[in-house]
Design a binder for these strands. Structure first.
Lengths: 160, 160
DNA sequence: CTCCAACATTGGCATGACCAACGTTGGCTC
DNA sequence: GAGCCAACGTTGGTCATGCCAATGTTGGAG
């Protein structure tokens, strides 16, 4: 028949911000789907990965490192604590704090998630060669670093 | 104390999906802020730009070209019609359709938005050279194209 | 004339990324 | 010590985005 649709307008296709957002949509969809196989969402993975990498920490500190808001951190910790993937214990030295510790089960789940996530990255980056992928990572890293992690750049530039 | 925080874990920093998402967050924030100066959001710009580029069309067709969902299109058209930036008229030849047409005021606003948006892109891409920018655009375009616009690839690959 | 497809519209939903307020606790300064 | 401010965890919101489902209408194909 005729041509019911045309492709998106050039004006929009050329917009870097729009391209970035489109790619993010795709990446997030793939990643979410992968993590969903383990009944987990992105926040959960980020938290577990940070815990294993840095060791036990307070919720606030974890929030700063992952970029997760304090309030969202509460929910995330709740979820994972229910499943015994981590433990929340009051800090004896500072009773304002909860010390979050990853459990052995948490580590096992994390290993599983790493596997799922690696496959997801691969699917996302499928059309790119290894060199292209590194190139993309470099470019995006420069963008992200330049704009300081969100609007959180307090400790980033200000020594004290 | 000194620095209670460390940077985000390497595991997360290296994740392309996460980098992409981070960049998208930044880009969207900058763009939203720019468009807000004209009291407009991304959907509004996308619609106006598509209208000027392709001429009058039905809401459904515009939705397909912009990637805006039909239901969201209704709201977007409502917004812009209220401000007389476009006109919604029933199609005399197919009474199911509304033909959306950009107005002169709409074109003027669009020109204004283009200006704001160009500045926003520039801010977003600030740390990258011209070559880097083109490189990034190419890479992202390949990603987006490969994954077919979202999960909409009905006409894209499937004949019938 | 029937049946199905496309359309516009309403209403909803989940998520992500936020912000504000609260009560508690720690640490600092007077 | 008393008072004050900062940090903490928690609750309870907000807002836009990207979606999906159901409805009623209209067109067109058979």
């Amino acid at each position: 028949m005729d041509t019911p649709e045309g492709p998106p307008p050039e004006r929009l296709r050329a917009l870097p911000s729009r391209l970035t957002n489109g790619a993010a949509l795709i990446a997030n969809r793939i990643v979410d789907q992968a993590l969903a196989q383990a009944g987990v969402r992105r926040y959960h993975y980020a938290l577990l990965a940070t815990l294993e990498e840095y060791g036990p920490a307070s919720q606030a500190a974890l929030g700063r490192r992952t970029g997760i808001d304090r309030s969202d951190m509460v929910t995330t910790v709740n979820d994972l604590a229910e499943r015994r993937l981590l433990e929340r214990a009051p800090d004896s030295e500072d009773r304002r704090r909860n010390i979050i510790t990853i459990t052995p089960a948490g580590r096992r789940q994390l290993a599983n998630l790493d596997r799922l996530l690696a496959a997801a990255q691969d699917e996302y980056l499928a059309p790119l060669s290894a060199a292209d992928r590194q190139n993309l990572i470099d470019l995006l890293t420069r963008l992200v670093d330049h704009h300081g992690d969100k609007h959180n750049q307090r400790a980033a530039a200000t020594p004290s």
